[in-house]
């Protein structure tokens, strides 16, 4: 029997790659993204690759009313419901510094929106007694840096939420994977200076699948970011506060 994967933020490069991977494994996909017209293309792509059911639904992390149709469609499918959450936005920190209201948007897209969404979905998963949530956090959430600390703070909040949700769903037979990607080759990072060891979205998608299969709690992808972040986290604050990395 096919499982159903909700892909939140399906038009992101990582979301797209992961949706294709689960479609090719024969699972249903519900592709939720802001740009529904474009996501229709992805839905047809997933159907051609083997998803028995592939549907595009418009969603806006800043409008909780847009979540209900996704819950309804998921509830209408039999079998296990999973969710992979790729949403988030990262304006330049300088832009947020100039207009603090921009930061609210980032926090909604990357933190409060997905938290609200997952909180609405959790009862259904508990009721089914199974299912995995893959939450995309960020290495930026491991330590606040001058370059993107609003986004980093939102992701740090999301990490903590995912940890709590894991605690909750585990007792109902579900699971939560927290994912902290390093640099991934997406439209968001294309042409940015200072990128190194950039991973392809397809490689990340594979890592996510393996992590979900193995019930991993927190993964870095590619794996070596665990060690990079270990070093960055262990820099004493009196030094770190003067650094710009």
């Amino acid at each position: 029997m096919s499982d159903t994967w909700i892909i939140l933020g399906a038009s992101s490069a990582m979301g797209r790659a992961f949706a294709r991977l689960v479609a090719a494994k024969g699972h249903n996909v519900i592709l939720a993204a802001r740009d529904v017209a474009d996501t229709e293309h992805s839905a047809r792509d997933c159907a051609a690759r083997g998803a028995p059911m592939a549907k595009a639904i418009a969603v806006d992390m800043r409008d909780a009313a847009s979540f209900q149709p996704i819950y309804d469609l998921a509830a209408a499918q039999s079998g296990t419901i999973h969710a992979a959450v790729f949403v988030g936005s990262m304006p330049e920190q300088a832009e947020i510094d100039a207009d603090p209201a921009l930061g609210d948007g980032t926090i909604q897209d990357s933190f409060t929106g997905p938290v609200h969404f997952l909180h609405g979905l959790a009862p259904l998963m508990e009721q089914r007694g199974s299912g995995t949530v893959i939450g995309i956090g960020s290495v930026a959430g491991d330590r606040g840096r001058v370059g993107n600390y609003t986004y980093g703070a939102a992701k740090a909040g999301f990490h903590t939420y995912l940890s709590g949700l894991r605690n909750r769903l585990t007792r109902a037979g579900g699971h939560v994977v927290t994912v902290k990607p390093g640099f991934v080759d997406t439209a968001m990072t294309w042409g940015l200076p200072g990128m190194f060891l950039v991973a392809s979205p397809e490689a990340v998608a594979k890592d996510l699948w393996v992590a979900a299969e193995k019930n991993k709690n927190t993964i870095y992808t590619p794996f070596f970011w665990r060690y990079i972040m270990l070093i960055i986290r262990s820099i004493p604050e009196f030094l770190f506060k003067k650094m710009s990395i």
Binding site: S11, R16, D38, H41, T186, A187, W190, G191, L192
Partner: peptide, 26 residues
């Protein structure tokens, strides 16, 4: 965003440095 890149054809004899855009949607 345009990414300035140096790249070649498969034969790697001829080279170019160009501004590259990489859209993900039509």
């Amino acid at each position: 965003r345009w990414n300035e890149m140096e790249y070649t054809g498969w034969g790697r004899v001829l080279k170019a440095k160009a501004q590259v855009a990489r859209p993900e949607k039509p």
